[in-house]
């Protein structure tokens, strides 16, 4: 039973995209991996429209005071078990935005993050590699 569950999860990770306060690039690269050159549907990865359907949350951008409650709400709405994959340097650490009054730091302070994919933005290859690594760790 456990094996079947694991197999199902590994072969069909549906992802929901949560953008906190990104600069759009990581988000565009996420959409980019769905398009012909990368085509992650080969691995069964599908971008879904509702967090209820998701197995993994792709989080991008820095957290700020206004979107933190919403991000936590999305995390609560996602059926467990779910992976949280932090994409982009901002999702790993606020970096250049550290001094700002509205930015409140990395995701792992608030929700458990499984994989970090740094880069500004990470190349599509890096994103695919990160997701595959995350699945291998299951």
């Amino acid at each position: 039973m456990g094996n079947a569950k694991l197999w199902g999860l590994k072969k069909s990770p549906w992802v929901f995209h949560v953008a906190a306060a990104p600069c759009n690039n990581c988000d565009i690269e996420i959409l980019d991996i769905l398009t012909p050159r990368w085509d992650v549907e080969r691995f069964g990865i599908v971008l879904v429209g509702s967090p209820r359907h998701a197995d993994a949350l792709l989080v991008t951008g820095v957290l700020n005071r206004k979107n933190l409650p919403r991000v936590l709400e999305v995390y609560r709405q996602t059926p467990k078990p779910c992976l949280v994959i932090a994409i982009g340097a901002c999702a790993c650490h606020p970096n250049i935005f550290q001094p700002s009054y509205n930015v409140i730091g990395p995701y792992d302070k608030y929700i458990p993050v499984d994989v970090y994919i740094p880069g500004c933005p990470p190349k599509p290859e890096a994103i695919i590699l990160g997701v595959v690594k995350a699945l291998q760790r299951l």
Binding site: N64, R65, K66, L68, P69, R70, V71, L72, Y101, N102, I104, K109, Y110
Partner: peptide
């Protein structure tokens, strides 16, 4: 700014001295 932001804090003013560091955040509700 967020709903939880203090309306009397205006970050672009000269007398603003990083008061945002004092605002504590509830880790459960945000």
């Amino acid at each position: 700014t967020a709903e939880a932001w203090h309306a009397d804090l205006q970050p672009l003013r000269r007398d603003y001295a990083d008061e945002h560091k004092e605002i504590k955040i509830d880790k459960k509700t945000g």
